[in-house]
């Protein structure tokens, strides 16, 4: 078992390097090339004035391709890390923040790459890989004892429900991260009108589509959590802080969908709601650090 845990960690380390390499490549691809054009102008007084002008051009296509390749390599490594950890613990890797975050990085990369293929845009990668990179740093910062495989405490001993409940949460958070990335790029695009960034309409659509995946998944998280709570605690809803934080997040995205589909909100207003929604996701994700209640496990208290 110990060797599998070590193998899982080495795969995570390799995946972290791939994420870093992918992030650099996506940055090079997205920010484009800057050319400084200089011109000497003759004034009426007979003097010359040197004028400089920065011109932006699309980034290297090869950098984008390498970024995608590294991101796929990262997915494979993180996936192997998750598989080895699952094999070592005989359950899904969801019992503490180390395992949860490891699985989150894997799913985030995978969901992003699916969006990249579907929409054929790579520029989102610069934001999504920043989040993935930050998550890798967070995982590295966790105390080393969390890398050990511990037995589940009795409250968590429900493998089927834990697997689907937590997996749904990871999937939902990952899609919301993609919608956040789309919202950021949207706001840049409408303010700077960058020609080689994806069109504002496409970014707006990516944000919406990601939420249409994440919103039902978060509903599923709440429902499966309720079913589990019913089996373990005798009540399907206990107003536990983690439950209510997830409900708050769900309501924020509910506002986004209602304002968009029924009030016709598009563009900047919708993008700001997405930014706020992702802040709620982060609040819920890291809630274990400051929430009490029945979700106060995960190795952080």
């Amino acid at each position: 078992m110990e060797s599998l845990v070590k193998l899982s960690f080495y795969c995570f380390a390799a995946g972290s390097i791939a994420v870093a390499a992918s992030w650099v490549s996506y940055v090079l691809f997205t920010i484009g090339r800057v050319r400084l054009r200089q011109a000497e102008l003759q004034t009426s007084a007979g003097t010359t004035v040197r004028a400089s002008k920065a011109e932006f051009a699309p980034g290297w296509t090869s950098a984008g391709r390498f970024g995608s390749m590294m991101a796929w390599f990262g997915v494979v490594m993180m996936g192997l890390s998750v598989i080895f950890r699952t094999a070592a613990s005989h359950r899904g890797p969801y019992s503490n923040m180390y395992e949860f975050s490891l699985a989150f990085v894997f799913v985030l990369l995978l969901i992003y790459l699916l969006f990249e293929r579907f929409y054929e845009v790579k520029q989102l990668g610069v934001i999504v890989l920043t989040i993935a990179g930050a998550m890798c740093l967070y995982i590295w910062s966790l105390p080393s004892y969390m890398r050990e495989v511990d037995a589940l405490n009795p409250a968590l001993q429900n493998r089927p429900l834990m697997t689907v409940h937590v997996s749904s949460a990871i999937l939902a958070y990952a899609t919301f991260a993609v919608s956040f990335a789309a919202a950021i790029l949207y706001l840049i695009q409408v303010r700077k009108n960058v020609s080689w960034l994806p069109s504002a309409d496409m970014l707006d659509d990516i944000g919406y589509r990601a939420v249409t995946v994440g919103f039902p998944l978060l509903a599923l998280v709440l429902i499966l959590g309720s079913v589990w709570a019913h089996e373990a605690w005798g009540a399907y809803w206990s107003w536990d802080p983690k439950e209510t934080a997830a409900l708050f997040t769900w309501l924020v995205y509910g506002v986004y969908l209602h304002t968009r589909t029924l009030r016709g909100w598009r563009g900047e207003r919708s993008a700001y709601v997405l930014l706020f929604g992702f802040a709620a996701v982060v609040f819920t994700y890291y809630g274990n650090y400051f929430f009490g209640g029945m979700h106060a496990y995960g190795g952080v208290n």
């Binding site: 802080p241 209510t244 708050f248 809630g287 400051f290 009490g292």
Partner: peptide
Amino acid sequence: VLLGTLRGSDA
């Protein structure tokens, strides 16, 4: 819901 959630925390 947010107020209730915060109430259940040290924040």
